[in-house]
Design a protein around this nucleic acid. Structure first.
Length: 393
DNA sequence: CATGCGTGGCG
DNA sequence: TCGCCAAGCAT
């Protein structure tokens, strides 16, 4: 059985009728003509260097184009060769990635650069399976790099492509489910322009980003509206099918800004797994530590710590970090940081160290002069802004 | 396969 | 204001 027949069987099973060869050809021409006239001028579209295209694709994961551009420029300036990435320190990489989020992406890139140095003589591999086996590269990114950098006809199915296809074909599949991606990939296998696969994939993504958008969608403005079943049938508002997200978990912390005699501040490095892994924060103490009844310091009457709460805090810091502190009971400010799946409610206080019960604890003192060379996640930056403002006045 | 993983923009 | 959204991947 040919691959083509397998494709059609899978689509048939999902109730998807593929277009005729003539219609596919007409669609390719219409889409690529639109792309040639309207494609966005983006930095990574001025290069054919697979390393640079790879960087752009990783940065663009779940991240908007306007956010990525300055990060991309700085990254290729700082690490112009794959060997530079392989040799870079984690501190250097995290500083380059600071504020971009999903920090495991850049850690994975360093691992992948090592794979390329060790297994491919430092040359970015052209083979799809070799690309896909690199750390941090999944089916989307492997398809994007192989089609854009090497002109290979592999699908690159992201959220844009699933939305565009859902509307073109009135697809009933939930685009949030992992199993759906395979079906869209089979459709692209049949639809993709074999002469210009990279441009075809990028054209679909540009269409999704600029015309076939999640909100404010106006199907009559699309260059491929004549191919759009949901437009012709006036069902477009239904697509794509997507289930709602679950509510985010909320956590409450006492955050302690602790200056030293030398004008440094104490920071803790987060665990190597989990949220903001390996990054620096001020001391963060779950509020449960100072009140087992779920006391919250924000939005209520308990703006300042009671003496009992301060004592519990001092005991905790002594046991956990081996430090004796004196805590200012007055609340310095609050800040809520919203992650994709989590909320941190932070109540900020100041404390000073007045003794130590042991040395070699897990905290590090960093001077504000060195902040520009240290990678801080946004919650740490926001807390620092508040602490710095209060300290100045 | 569902969940965890950042951040900023938008209506 | 706040929930949703943006060129996904590892586990």
């Amino acid at each position: 059985m040919t691959n083509c027949m397998k494709n059609k069987d899978l689509l048939k099973e999902k109730g998807i009728i593929m277009w005729s060869d003539d219609k596919i050809e007409a669609f390719q021409k219409t889409l690529l003509d639109w792309y040639d006239a309207n494609k966005r001028d983006l930095p990574w579209r001025r290069t054919s260097n697979p390393y640079y295209i790879w960087i752009s694709e990783i940065m663009l994961q779940q991240t908007q184009v306007d956010t990525v551009i300055p990060y991309y420029e700085r990254f290729i300036d700082t690490l112009p060769e794959i060997s530079d990435l392989a040799a870079a320190s984690e501190d250097t990489l995290l500083k380059l990635w600071e504020g971009l989020g999903y920090y495991s992406r850049v850690r994975n890139m360093k691992v992948a650069a090592g794979q390329i140095m060790a297994d491919h003589n430092g040359i970015f591999p052209e083979d799809y399976d070799a690309i896909k086996s690199l750390k941090g590269i999944g089916p989307y990114t492997a398809g994007a790099v192989s089609s854009i950098a090497f002109n290979r006809p592999h699908p690159a199915v992201d959220g844009n492509v699933m939305r565009v296809l859902s509307r073109l074909f009135e697809i009933e599949l939930d685009i949030g489910k992992a199993s759906s991606r395979k079906v869209f990939e089979e459709m692209i296998h049949l639809l993709i322009d074999r002469e210009r696969p990279g441009d075809f994939n990028q054209a679909l993504m540009d269409l999704g980003a600029t015309i076939c958008t999640p909100k404010n969608y106006k199907p009559e403005t699309s260059p491929v509206k004549d191919f759009n079943a949901s437009y012709l049938n006036e069902t477009w508002a239904r697509y794509p099918i997507k289930q709602g997200k679950k509510k985010v978990r909320e956590e409450n912390y006492v955050v302690l800004a602790v200056p030293t005699d030398e004008g440094e501040y104490l920071f803790q490095k987060r665990a190597s797994e989990g949220v903001l892994s390996g990054m620096w924060t001020f001391l963060m103490i779950p509020t449960e530590v100072i009140n087992e009844d779920g006391w919250k310091s924000f939005g209520g009457s308990a703006d300042s710590l009671t003496d009992t709460q301060a004592e519990l805090l001092v005991d905790y810091i002594k046991n956990e970090y081996g430090l004796i502190i004196a805590c200012d009971n007055n609340l310095k400010g609050t800040y809520t940081h919203i992650f994709s799946h989590l909320k941190w409610h932070m109540s900020i206080y100041e404390a000073v160290v007045i003794g130590e019960t042991e040395t070699g604890h897990s905290l590090h003192a960093i001077h504000p002069d060195d902040f520009p060379d240290t990678a801080f996640p946004v919650p740490t930056q926001k807390v620092w802004e508040m602490v710095n403002t209060i300290t100045l006045f």
